[in-house]
Simulated scan of single mutants.
Amino acid sequence: MIARRLALLSLLALTALAGCSTPPPPKPLVPRVQVVLLPQEDGRPTGVVVQSGNASQTLVEPFQRASSRANQAPVVDQADPEQVRQAYDPLFKIAPPKPVRYVLFFQPGGTRLTGESQAELPRIQAESARYPGVEILVVGHTDTKGSGDGNDTLSLRRAQQVRDLLVQQGLPANRIEAVGRGERELAVSTGDEVDEPRNRRVEIQLR
Results as ranks from 00 to 15, higher is better:
203 E>Y: 11
193 E>G: 15
131 Y>I: 01
150 G>A: 13
74 P>T: 06
81 P>K: 07
5 R>V: 13
95 A>R: 15
158 R>M: 11
186 L>I: 05
92 F>H: 06
67 S>L: 11
72 Q>A: 04
190 T>V: 15
167 V>N: 02
23 P>A: 12
112 R>L: 07
206 L>S: 00
54 N>T: 12
95 A>Y: 01
122 P>E: 12
190 T>E: 15
130 R>M: 00
165 L>D: 11
154 L>D: 06
127 E>T: 04
104 L>K: 00
80 D>K: 04
203 E>A: 14
5 R>F: 12
6 L>C: 14
24 P>D: 07
21 S>I: 05
89 D>C: 04
53 G>V: 09
35 V>Y: 13
136 I>D: 02
35 V>Q: 12
92 F>K: 06
80 D>Q: 02
153 T>W: 04
150 G>H: 08
11 L>I: 05
159 A>M: 15
70 A>N: 06
119 A>P: 00
181 R>G: 03
177 E>Q: 12
149 D>T: 04
41 E>T: 06
161 Q>I: 00
185 E>L: 08
197 P>I: 05
18 A>V: 06
1 M>Y: 14
139 V>A: 05
132 P>K: 08
179 V>F: 02
110 G>P: 01
165 L>R: 11
113 L>A: 14
170 G>H: 13
13 A>M: 12
66 A>Q: 02
150 G>N: 08
73 A>P: 14
16 A>P: 08
23 P>G: 07
21 S>R: 15
47 G>W: 04
77 D>C: 13
152 D>W: 05
132 P>G: 06
139 V>Y: 00
84 V>C: 08
188 V>K: 15
190 T>N: 08
155 S>A: 14
194 V>Y: 15
115 G>M: 03
186 L>N: 11
106 F>Y: 09
151 N>V: 02
166 L>P: 01
6 L>Y: 10
60 V>T: 14
184 R>A: 14
44 R>P: 08
145 K>M: 13
2 I>D: 07
98 K>G: 03
59 L>P: 12
113 L>T: 10
201 R>S: 06
43 G>Q: 05
75 V>Q: 07
161 Q>K: 12
67 S>A: 08
194 V>L: 02
68 S>V: 11
182 G>H: 03
21 S>D: 15
100 V>L: 09
36 V>I: 05
97 P>Y: 12
125 Q>V: 01
33 V>G: 03
105 F>N: 06
109 G>V: 03
156 L>N: 01
69 R>Q: 13
12 L>D: 05
42 D>T: 04
97 P>S: 07
120 E>S: 01
19 G>R: 06
190 T>F: 10
130 R>A: 05
123 R>H: 11
77 D>A: 11
55 A>S: 10
180 G>A: 03
30 V>A: 14
71 N>T: 07
18 A>G: 09
166 L>E: 07
168 Q>K: 11
128 S>E: 00
